[in-house]
């Protein structure tokens, strides 16, 4: 397969505990099924405990890429958390970057303790709009319903966005390989919810 843009650079970002690593693992495994070179760079460790987390996922038909994306070179940013999406855009965004973002905040402890302020969600989304080519907001939390699985939800949205040259079936196959069988059905449901949120269906 050849790519229109090679390498194609995706950043998935969120907060430790949201399942960033699993999300990037699924996307990358799906990519490898299309016979692409895929590289995933992760930051975790201390970040597991509530810090900002980023996965760099890079697709190429030509060579294995380094696990890090250069400053300003993200083609797609998937934000599991809105402030983190903006943090990533500040360093890796460019006028052509496409953003898919969950609007649900996870408050840093310095916000909880009153030492820092969390900006209004409208301001975050507005600034993202100004920096990105296009911002798509994936909001499916209804009536304060607890929303777990933001990672898989956002991967569903990404899969349906058409921004990656990877068919839905490859995502599903990757999920079958990676996830525990008992969690599979619930995750497929979440994945489809994300797809629907993207296609509006």
């Amino acid at each position: 397969m050849t790519l229109e843009k090679d390498p194609l650079n995706l950043i998935i970002t969120g907060v430790g505990g949201q399942g960033n690593v699993l999300a990037s693992h699924i996307v990358a495994s799906a990519g490898i099924k299309e016979e692409l070179y895929v590289t995933v760079g992760e930051t975790y460790g201390a970040s597991q405990r509530g810090g900002a987390v980023m996965s760099h996922v890079r697709f190429s038909s030509q060579a294995q890429c380094s696990p890090l994306i250069s400053e300003g070179q993200a083609d797609i940013v998937v934000g599991l958390e809105p402030v983190e999406a903006l943090r990533v855009m500040a360093e890796f965004g460019n006028p052509k970057t496409r953003v898919i973002v969950s609007p649900r905040p996870i408050y840093p402890i310095w916000v909880l303790s009153g030492q820092a302020k969390y900006p209004p969600i409208e301001e975050i989304l507005g600034n993202l709009e100004e920096l990105a080519d296009r911002v798509q907001v994936v909001d499916v939390s209804e009536d304060g319903e607890a929303l777990v699985g933001t990672n898989v939800l956002m991967i569903g949205a990404l899969a349906a966005s058409g921004l990656l040259p990877i068919p839905i079936e490859s995502f599903e196959e990757a999920m079958r390989e990676i996830l525990a069988p008992k969690d599979l059905e619930m995750n497929f449901q979440t994945f489809r919810k994300g797809m629907q949120a993207m296609t509006g269906g």
Binding site: A52, S70, L86, A90, P95, W110, E130, L131
Partner: peptide
């Protein structure tokens, strides 16, 4: 790596409002 005007704009739109996220 990218256009300087854009880089400045990105910093201006993000850095002043981003709360730090300390690991906990």
């Amino acid at each position: 790596t990218r256009d300087e005007v854009y880089a400045q704009r990105a910093s201006d739109l993000a850095l002043p409002i981003l709360p730090p996220r300390m690991p906990t």
